[in-house]
Nucleic acid binder design. Sequence first.
RNA 1: UCGGGAUUAGCUCAGUCGGUUAGAGCGGGUGACUGUUAAUCACUAGGUCGGGGGUUCAAGUCCCUCAUCCCGAGCCA
Length: 461
Amino acid sequence: MQPRAGRAAPPVGTAVVVQGWVRTVRHSKGGFSFVAVHDGSCFAPLQAVVGSELPGYDDVQRLTTGCAVRVSGALVASEGQGQALELKATAVEVVGWVENPDTYPMQPKRHSLEFLRDNAHLRARTNLIGAVTRVRNCLAQATHRFFHDRGFFWVHTPLITTSDCEGGGEMFRVSTLDLANLPRTPSGAVDFGQDFFGQEAHLTVSGQLNVETYCMALSKVYTFGPTFRAENSNTRRHLAEFWMIEPEVAFADLMSNAQLAADYIQAIFRAVLDERGDDLAFFAQHVEKDAARRLEALVGARFEMMTYTEAVRRLEAAPVSFEYPVSWGIDLQSEHERYLSEQVVGGPVIVTDYPKDIKAFYMRMNEDGKTVAAMDILAPGIGELVGGSQREERLDRLDARMAEMGLDPAPYWWYRDLRRYGTVPHAGFGLGFERAVMYATGCENIREVIPFPRTPRQAKF
RNA sequence: UCGGGAUUAGCUCAGUCGGUUAGAGCGGGUGACUGUUAAUCACUAGGUCGGGGGUUCAAGUCCCUCAUCCCGAGCCA
């Protein structure tokens, strides 16, 4: 219906058919009505001017917010303020009425975010969720474009996994066993041998280990799909089901990995600035006035690099008192990460070489024997945006780390095999997709940036 | 999971020290008016005050309890 972002508006006189949902209706006794029709293609609705002489005008007078309509006509220069073009209707058809206008939830007014979540099946019709959805799509398309242009292959790693050892986090069980009548082994334990997969199975918490296998063949790969955490996290930053992007590059070290991550972040946010100016204007006005400015700054910024050891030194020297005291060896808290990027650097910063004890077993051991080749990208206003590392490609070192952390190597046999057969240095990172959408839109609650949020006690839609 | 806050009309909220018939704005309906912009004006309908229990002559208001939501923390992306 609308001129798409980045394209010129069709000229006056163009014949168009608009199909969409009514946002607002205003009737004039001058013999016509204004019907704002929205089809989701861009932020703005299109104002249709419907004359009383048209067949079905009595229906138009009964229209309310939410009705579905089809309006035919021609684009004309608007006689009113507020829009350059409008649709001079030649035919109007009500495709779907709102059954009970008195209780239709989506009124032309500001609703609370909690109310919108309770009406997730209708909230896509609002300015906010519509704009978020277009920005989310823009970030997703830009992600695929970025990696495709650089010769990466998108690998569909499994959602169901039988390695109950993928790393941190509670996992959701996948089972077809009858919960009311569980099969038992002689020792009394649940007999998962009789379950669907013949063993315990869960939803994945990360595609990284799987995608490394394809990295060792296709060289440059990435995952982009849902992941699941059964943690009882009740915060505005956590979901039980969320999407992650995890690139993995063979013959790569930590520095090239950091460069890739920085390029990637700038590419996807540049796409939002280029393609979704209409939606960004809305966020600036109604959600977070600095959101677009923050994106501009990040896209134009040079990413500074700093080792963890240097970061701790700077934090210890900081003339502020943190809630959590700083010393070498601690995991950086959100307050520390934000101080580093906002106060110390004044822009995005890549912190590298973390103590081994606060990082995962698969990260590559440095020569000092105390730190690993990890890197986090910290950005102003959000903290950690990306976490990644060079992976441990040396089997003896990997085994030593697993032993040190008390991990049973047996279930990791196929992951270890990658180190036995043609192992190469490789590196990758992970980015929580919803965190990126939050950053781009300024939304403070992650439940607004995914269509159907899954959180503890909430999966009803 | 822990700590704090909240739950009153379709929505957003007010409701004093416990005291007569629980209010407003928006939305809906009716009418007036207008190239209008979440229009404006008038009239009108709309309530088991989250559930349960208790204190009291009297509870939306005080106490206990349960549920749900929000914010913060932990976990983490």
